[in-house]
């Protein structure tokens, strides 16, 4: 694994090094960063959390070792136009998450199933209280592709502050890595954590 050694450097130099290394790291890959400064460590942790970047750390003899993994394909960075919306009100969220496990809603006729799923996603946007998060796994990831009929609605939900977590294993299993149009690639640990920490799971 690549090691970025920022020992002896003061804030914000370690952060600059971390950001540079993140940009040079492929999605799914990790690198290790060393710092011997408490403030730098605190600020790095805060920055990585704020930017949904997964990391683990250990400390020995005054040196912190951070293993930083780039999970996202930087979906957010590629859509600059999303940052141009002038007026976005702040939306309330309810105490529930939505888990999407299929590209269809309910069992029965396939075409009807697709239509119902589309209507479901559109309807969520109009709820008084939005979901805390939306999780997509197995065939559920298929409705988050760029060509999905509901991709615009999902992007709107994301802009309204709803985090969309996509099972990275599922995305690569269905070879969709290049066609994902919203959300953050996530791992099973995070998905399980989100599902167990929320009281109410809504599954279409």
């Amino acid at each position: 694994m690549r090691i970025v050694d920022t020992r002896g450097q003061l804030c914000p130099a370690p952060l600059i090094a971390a950001k540079k290394a993140l940009r040079e790291t492929e999605a799914g890959e990790s690198f290790m960063l060393l710092t011997d400064n408490q403030t730098s460590f605190d600020n790095l942790s805060r920055f990585l959390k704020d930017n949904n970047t997964h990391f683990q750390f250990s400390k020995a003899e005054g040196v912190w070792e951070l293993t930083i993994t780039r999970l996202t394909g930087d979906v957010s960075e590629t859509r600059a136009e999303d940052y141009c919306t002038p007026e976005i009100t702040h939306f309330e969220k309810g105490n529930y998450i939505v888990v999407v496990t299929s590209d269809k809603m309910g069992e029965g006729d396939e075409e009807l199933g697709h239509l119902l799923m589309s209507n479901f996603i559109k309807a969520i946007k109009d709820l008084d209280r939005l979901p805390q998060k939306m999780v997509f796994y197995n065939k559920g990831v298929m409705i988050v592709t760029k060509n999905s009929p509901v991709i615009d609605h999902l992007r709107d939900l994301e802009k309204m502050g709803v985090e969309l977590l996509l099972c990275a294993t599922c995305v690569s299993h269905y070879s969709l890595s290049d066609s994902i149009g919203a959300g953050i690639l996530s791992n099973m640990f995070t998905i399980v954590e989100v599902m167990t920490s929320t009281g109410n799971i809504i599954k279409p």
Partner: peptide
């Protein structure tokens, strides 16, 4: 954007 965020900001 390059990460030059001074400690005081945090």
């Amino acid at each position: 954007d390059e990460g030059c965020i001074p400690g005081a900001s945090f």
